[in-house]
Amino acid sequence: MTLIEKNGYQDSVYINAAKIFQGVHTKKLKDRQLVRYGSDAGSPVLTVKNQSFLRVSYELAFNALKYQDLLEEILLDSCVYPCHSIPDELTSLLVVMLYDLQERKFQAREIFDEEEPVAEVRKIEHYLYSFRIKLAAALARCRIKHDALSIEYLLPEAIRKQVQRTSALPLCVWINTCKTSLEDVFGDLKKRGFTRVESVSDFDRYTYCIDQHCNDVVFFPSSLKEELLNLDLFADCKLLLQ
């Protein structure tokens, strides 16, 4: 099952991410509350298909959270928000899907045929895409105002440095020996073109190394994250990202 795509996610991922975002978004004082998120009473009921599905949902939600101020500014500056046809209860979905839309450079999403469409997702998607030029212009104005090469430069410096450090770290993966064996995993990786090296200092694209102290812990280059999470080994929970 494909979950991570440069051209978008499944409808249910957006719904999950919106539920997560609704519970963690930064709540502002009423006199500064220009974007309203509706009620968040009770714990959200998340769809859990597998570990990869849940991880992608959380990543999307927290990426939107990281850029919440920027996304709200884009919505307001473009006059895309407020909209009488979109209730406050869908604002979290609006923000989450806007984050993904700008990540795709405001290009159309690839529609998945693996599941039933979700009406709310399609509604928000159509609405945002119909205003993509205004949204892109609002983002450009924001970047010009702050002299930012990319949206990462709009983050506070401390957060930006933390993100940079995290993205440079090798990916730590645990082999779930309850579902597979070390030999099967290593064999599968070899078939997919991966080469085992001695240490992280030897990393070169499709390579991996085994932890010196735990032979069921494997490290990969951070640049391979998206490709790795799309492997059946992750979808089947045979490999677990730590």
Rank of each mutant, 00 (worst) to 15 (best):
1 M>P: 00
1 M>F: 13
3 L>K: 04
5 E>G: 05
6 K>C: 03
7 N>G: 04
10 Q>K: 13
11 D>F: 02
13 V>M: 03
13 V>Q: 05
16 N>D: 15
17 A>M: 07
18 A>K: 07
18 A>I: 06
20 I>M: 07
21 F>Y: 14
21 F>T: 03
22 Q>P: 00
23 G>V: 14
25 H>R: 11
26 T>Q: 15
26 T>A: 12
27 K>F: 06
31 D>Q: 11
38 G>F: 10
40 D>N: 13
40 D>P: 00
44 P>R: 09
45 V>Y: 14
47 T>F: 00
48 V>Q: 11
50 N>K: 08
50 N>M: 08
52 S>N: 13
53 F>S: 13
54 L>R: 11
56 V>I: 11
57 S>A: 07
60 L>N: 01
62 F>V: 00
62 F>E: 13
64 A>Q: 07
64 A>V: 00
65 L>A: 05
67 Y>F: 04
67 Y>H: 04
69 D>F: 06
70 L>C: 06
71 L>Q: 01
72 E>Y: 03
73 E>K: 11
75 L>Q: 09
75 L>H: 03
76 L>W: 06
77 D>S: 12
80 V>P: 12
80 V>D: 07
82 P>D: 15
88 D>F: 06
88 D>E: 15
89 E>A: 14
90 L>H: 04
92 S>M: 03
103 E>Q: 10
105 K>G: 00
107 Q>R: 10
107 Q>S: 08
108 A>I: 11
110 E>F: 00
111 I>Y: 01
112 F>H: 09
115 E>D: 10
115 E>P: 09
117 P>E: 15
120 E>Y: 07
122 R>D: 13
123 K>A: 14
126 H>I: 12
128 L>I: 03
128 L>N: 06
129 Y>E: 14
130 S>G: 07
131 F>G: 00
133 I>M: 13
133 I>F: 02
133 I>C: 05
134 K>H: 10
134 K>N: 12
136 A>T: 11
137 A>P: 00
139 L>H: 06
145 K>L: 11
148 A>I: 11
148 A>S: 14
151 I>Q: 09
156 P>R: 04
156 P>F: 03
157 E>C: 04
157 E>T: 12
157 E>K: 00
161 K>D: 15
162 Q>C: 06
162 Q>D: 08
163 V>C: 05
163 V>N: 05
165 R>G: 01
168 A>T: 02
169 L>N: 06
175 I>Y: 02
175 I>P: 01
177 T>G: 05
183 E>Y: 09
184 D>K: 03
185 V>K: 00
187 G>I: 03
188 D>C: 13
188 D>T: 12
191 K>Q: 15
193 G>Y: 10
194 F>E: 05
195 T>E: 14
196 R>D: 02
197 V>N: 04
197 V>I: 09
200 V>K: 10
200 V>T: 14
202 D>T: 03
203 F>C: 03
204 D>E: 15
205 R>E: 15
206 Y>E: 12
209 C>H: 07
218 V>R: 10
218 V>D: 09
221 P>L: 07
222 S>L: 04
223 S>P: 01
223 S>L: 08
224 L>P: 00
224 L>F: 01
225 K>C: 01
225 K>Q: 10
226 E>T: 13
231 L>Y: 08
235 A>N: 12
239 L>K: 02
239 L>Y: 09
240 L>C: 10
240 L>F: 00
241 L>H: 02
242 Q>G: 00
242 Q>P: 04
242 Q>C: 08
